[in-house]
Design a protein around this nucleic acid. Sequence first.
DNA 1: GTATGTCAGTTGCAAATGCAACTATTTTAA
DNA 2: TTAAAATAGTTGCATTTGCAACTGACATAC
Lengths: 215, 215
Amino acid sequence: MPDTKIFDNITDGEIDKMKNCFKAVNRKYIEGETINNIENGSLGIVVSGVVEIIRFDFDGNRTILERINENGIFGRLFFSRIDEGDVEIICLTDCEIMFIDYDHLTKQCHNACSHHSTLIRNMLSIVSEKSIKLSNRVEILSQRTLRKKLITYFNMISKETGKKNIVVPFSLSNLSDYLCVDRSAMLREMKKMREEGLIDSHAKKVTILYDQTMF
Amino acid sequence: MPDTKIFDNITDGEIDKMKNCFKAVNRKYIEGETINNIENGSLGIVVSGVVEIIRFDFDGNRTILERINENGIFGRLFFSRIDEGDVEIICLTDCEIMFIDYDHLTKQCHNACSHHSTLIRNMLSIVSEKSIKLSNRVEILSQRTLRKKLITYFNMISKETGKKNIVVPFSLSNLSDYLCVDRSAMLREMKKMREEGLIDSHAKKVTILYDQTMF
DNA sequence: GTATGTCAGTTGCAAATGCAACTATTTTAA
DNA sequence: TTAAAATAGTTGCATTTGCAACTGACATAC
């Protein structure tokens, strides 16, 4: 399923009218900046760039809850526990984010913008894509062992690109934060897999040698 | 956010027309029955009852990927790995499921049903709710220790009901399949937590004694 | 009433994982 | 170009977790 953009099939003129209608605000951030002060009913749409939703636990663990690419969405709505533990939204690259009021977007528009229904349709598509990504995330985290987490993850990347030699889009240190495991334990497991001939790997470059139909 | 129904704010007469329009089919299942033969583009809506999406691993582990209540949705779209491992959709109670063709639902309707946009709006709401549930699931599974998985889960239930004495809606055996941990290890951890005075528990009845602001 | 099955609970032991503390290599910044 | 920081990689040891094999309670079916 290709990425849907929030304003697909809406003319520029209409876009301006609509942005005004549901109080859209665009903001730019630089690489490394943290996105703060998101209101409860506000929805962030990544116009350009990449952001990560990061949780820092009380005991020092860092967890990458989500990585959100262009056209992805985020908002307090989607991480109920923002108040517990410390959840941060960090820009991995320079970013442009559009914030819109979720209620305005979903509810019937007084001004009866003619393209409002197209917008809702696009939004449905974007949220559906988010659901699929979250389901994939659950699929990985539900694996019982470190090795199976790695294999499930490698398989997903491989499936996307159709290739058996993949480049992990995280540093290995960040990958462990994404898989929610200890970094050294993860590297140890990758070493074992190398020794057993299941994979070949140098840093972020991994080649799948095992039979993918087995997993 | 209250549960939205797919046909909220649409008149009965319209519903019949629309069901025909996007080829909706209702089917009934009895408790324990497995829902099979879901086409790729088909979306299941739980009209009544409760279903679970279960994965059986090659090494015998059972995982409850999702529990879907009334008005929830499921479909191949949402579990990319249905072909790998063995994913089953099981009715926990007698169920009525409406299957609809996802593309028909999202695309512009030739017949220009007047309420089609209301339907899309409802659908957006349903998918958003699913996303929130999946985010919560990630929140639980991303916890590094068994104890923190339990605490995160207990806190969520407690938050929903506003009470500190909760009744887990799973058998403890199924809870371990939901938290993706070993059953005996989970019971051992609950025992420890009881001994440390963090909780009180007898079977599925758990009382939270720890300070919830700590987690 | 007996058998069968599910659920809750327990425990010893083995295996997997986390933690800590390193070294080596590569990148980035001054 | 050198220093500092981030990344990759390794390993010993402690802890957590999984596995297996039990027991006892309760419910359901025969």
